[in-house]
């Protein structure tokens, strides 16, 4: 086994899904890798001056420009004639990627830069204190989408980033979950040799923001996939070529009950029932659209 390239000693919370996934991604990529990173938890807990957890070249610039900085790094390496020897991986959280950084990401994909973009999706702005993002699931409670007399949490479903990226006509798009490290590793290794822009959406539980026990990260990361709420799949050249399928899906309530952010849906009220039905409907749509059940 090779040494970790994302080393211990950083200040991530116990049970942080993002730090687990980032380590798997980087170890799969290997040492000939340059990382660009959006502002967010990952950058903050790993690069407090004068320390760094990164054993590869790493650059953090701003919140919304990880994809653009990566485009520049790639262009610079190309000019220097060394791009073929070096992987460029752009990283960001869900807010930095799907909200404030979506324009820069779209530009990078459209221009065709040879970069793997990895979005670590913990479904809210965790670094600033659990505010709602465009990737927060419907009905989840955050500090800016609280449940209350007139609210059941977030009012709209999350963006489908894999489909948005695939629609750019790029060669490779994948979703993955921190609950399946080998799958992440395989996808990173598959993505990197492909020339051009690649996008990976990795589902990473946040115990603090989702209000679950730090020891439950792995279980929840698996449950999201096993219940059909977060489909794990691959697109190649715009077509879905692989889906993680199950003989039988687990009940959605197992996933929701394990997290405090959905606790308000467990009440006996018509609104809560309606919300649960809406979430269940997302699962049914996923089953139909991605053929999640093994035949």
């Amino acid at each position: 086994m090779q040494d970790n390239l994302f080393v211990s000693g950083h200040t991530a919370c116990a049970g942080c899904g993002q730090s687990m996934a980032a380590r798997i991604v980087l170890n799969a990529a290997g040492k000939n890798t340059i990382i660009t990173n959006a502002t967010g938890c990952l950058e903050v807990f790993s690069t407090g001056f004068p320390q760094t957890a990164w054993a590869v070249p790493f650059i953090h610039s701003l919140f919304e420009n990880s994809a653009a900085v990566a485009s520049g790094v790639e262009a610079g390496l190309k000019h220097l004639g060394i791009k073929d020897r070096v992987n460029v991986i752009a990283q960001g959280g869900d807010g930095g990627t799907a909200d404030i950084g979506l324009q820069a990401l779209s530009g990078m994909l459209e221009r065709g830069h040879d970069v793997l973009y990895v979005m670590y999706d913990n479904e809210a702005y965790m670094n600033t204190g659990i505010q709602r993002s465009g990737m927060t699931p419907i009905c989840a409670e955050t500090t800016t989408s609280p449940a209350g007399k007139r609210s059941l949490g977030k009012v709209r479903p999350k963006k489908n980033m894999a489909a948005i990226c695939a629609a750019h006509g790029i060669p490779y798009v994948a979703t993955a979950s921190a609950g399946y490290p080998k799958d992440i590793e395989r996808k990173v290794k598959k993505a990197l040799p492909i020339k051009g822009p690649k996008f990976m959406h990795i589902f990473v539980p946040c115990p603090l923001g989702w209000r679950h026990d730090p020891s439950a990260t792995d279980k929840i990361a698996k449950l999201a996939v096993e219940t059909g709420l977060f489909p794990v799949l691959e697109y190649e050249n715009g077509e879905i070529t692989n889906v993680m399928r199950f003989k039988q899906l687990k009940p959605l309530s197992e996933l929701l009950k394990a997290q405090g952010r959905f606790r308000h849906l467990m009440k006996e009220s018509p609104e809560a029932k309606e919300a649960l039905a809406f979430l269940e409907n997302i699962v049914q749509e996923n089953i139909a659209r991605y053929k999640l059940i093994k035949e």
């Binding site: 650059i59 610039s61 653009a68 900085v69 520049g72 790094v73 262009a75 610079g76 820069a104 459209e110």
Partner: peptide, 26 residues
């Protein structure tokens, strides 16, 4: 030179930030 046509000035500045950091005059 690599001529990069970006989608905004925010990205233009970010690209030259990245390319300079990578070691290319930009």
């Amino acid at each position: 030179a690599e001529y990069v046509n970006v989608e905004s000035e925010h990205s233009a500045a970010s690209v030259v930030l990245g390319s300079t950091a990578a070691g290319a005059r930009s």
